[in-house]
Design a protein around this nucleic acid. Sequence first.
DNA 1: CGCCTGCTTGAACGCTATCAAAAAACGTGG
DNA 2: CCACGTTTTTTGATAGCGTTCAAGCAGGCG
Lengths: 251, 251
Amino acid sequence: MEETVKLPKTGCESCSLRELKGYRTFSSPAEAKFIAKFKSGELNCEPGTTIAAEGSFSPHLFTVLDGWGFRYKTMEDGRRQVINFIVPGDLVGLQGAILDQMDHSVEALTKMRLCIFERDRVFSLFEKHAQLAFDITWLAAREEFMLDEHLLSVGRRTALERAAYLLAFLYERGTASGLISPKKTHLPVTQDLIADMLGLSLVHTNKTLRKLADQKLISWQDKGCNVLDQEGLCTVAEWTPPEEGEPRPFL
Amino acid sequence: MEETVKLPKTGCESCSLRELKGYRTFSSPAEAKFIAKFKSGELNCEPGTTIAAEGSFSPHLFTVLDGWGFRYKTMEDGRRQVINFIVPGDLVGLQGAILDQMDHSVEALTKMRLCIFERDRVFSLFEKHAQLAFDITWLAAREEFMLDEHLLSVGRRTALERAAYLLAFLYERGTASGLISPKKTHLPVTQDLIADMLGLSLVHTNKTLRKLADQKLISWQDKGCNVLDQEGLCTVAEWTPPEEGEPRPFL
DNA sequence: CGCCTGCTTGAACGCTATCAAAAAACGTGG
DNA sequence: CCACGTTTTTTGATAGCGTTCAAGCAGGCG
């Protein structure tokens, strides 16, 4: 089902993520060395695997190396809200590591590969590598930034706008992280999941997505979505993707 | 209108916030000294003052010393979404300082007093005081935590539940920060503002709040709300306030 | 006193939810 | 490769929650 590889700590310098366009390289050899030791293993998991569960304690913190995931919260009666999607470079479990409180679950959407860190060593990272500490804060601030946008969307956009925003957002994140490319434009999401992110019912989500498909902005196939016209989606949503600045940091 | 006091940097050790129950004291004299130098002034402002505007660049970062505020995003056609409320100890402008991007506005709800920091000196804080750097990350993680809850609420709760959740949340934050006490139970919010946080129309918000008032959970007076039965609100919302752990950090 | 802001209420409309069911796609074992 | 159960997508009909439009009221302030 899932598999934890304990020792391939090697090669953080040649981490596949470092080579990706838009991702930061190490700022010093010392930093690379530190991370290599900081890393305690790798986790490979299949679609549907729960990486962290609401309310549980996890001694780990992860950086996503490959694959899509998402995090969500549930209410006792089963209502579910997807909070955000997760792509390579994202930190998983930061709230748990910093606040000692994990009030959302994280699940793999595709096969995922994650880098494992020990949360009780996080403080040592802050002590020894200010730049890395800053990077963690950067990641936290950026997550906050995305949640701000999601809140605006769920709170104030119509169903059609919301759906368009979300797909444009996912497309944007996908391309920025190399999960989406001209030859692989497939978003691995079910309509059920989209519904729970949009705060809409499944039925209405379906009808809304159909409209977007009729307008040739997306197409739906193979348990997922293809974005055909990113700009069109942005127009419908009245949204503009954040412009890429510096290469983004990650641990 | 607003008034920037440039020099009373003194007395961070005896900062009114440090004395508040639930707020952390300095962990070392060196830290206190650093913060005293890090602080570049104080800002006093009146209700309605815009402390930071969407899209603008601000060279400052603030810690709230006193008063209520809120942050929000707007769309071009005027739709507004309140993202979160701000109480003493909260950091204002973190996204701007870390990401060089400020995509929300911040406004004072009551008179506010803020501590001013220079954003271009933030990195030096990370270099010299790991504990303070960690604290900033703690604050960011906690904001993220709150936004997670807001998203669940706006996305999946009914109007009545949402309203109950929000008021319970505000009451909780208010008491934790000393803005609310047995003798001062007044939340300085208009229904207009509540509506824009709940993602509901003003009219429906009004009717919903009326129901909560009819159930004697709240009362509305003096341009604001009094929480009469916090537990009752929590029950309606199916929400439980986070339990206080360690004293919370702040800059 | 009159204006402005904020709260309240009623009525009609409509977006979205819910219910119900079927079609399509997928996975799996024979 | 086919049959069959399961998951996912689709569609139609009905109900209802929340919006919009339209007033009216109350309190604060110049």
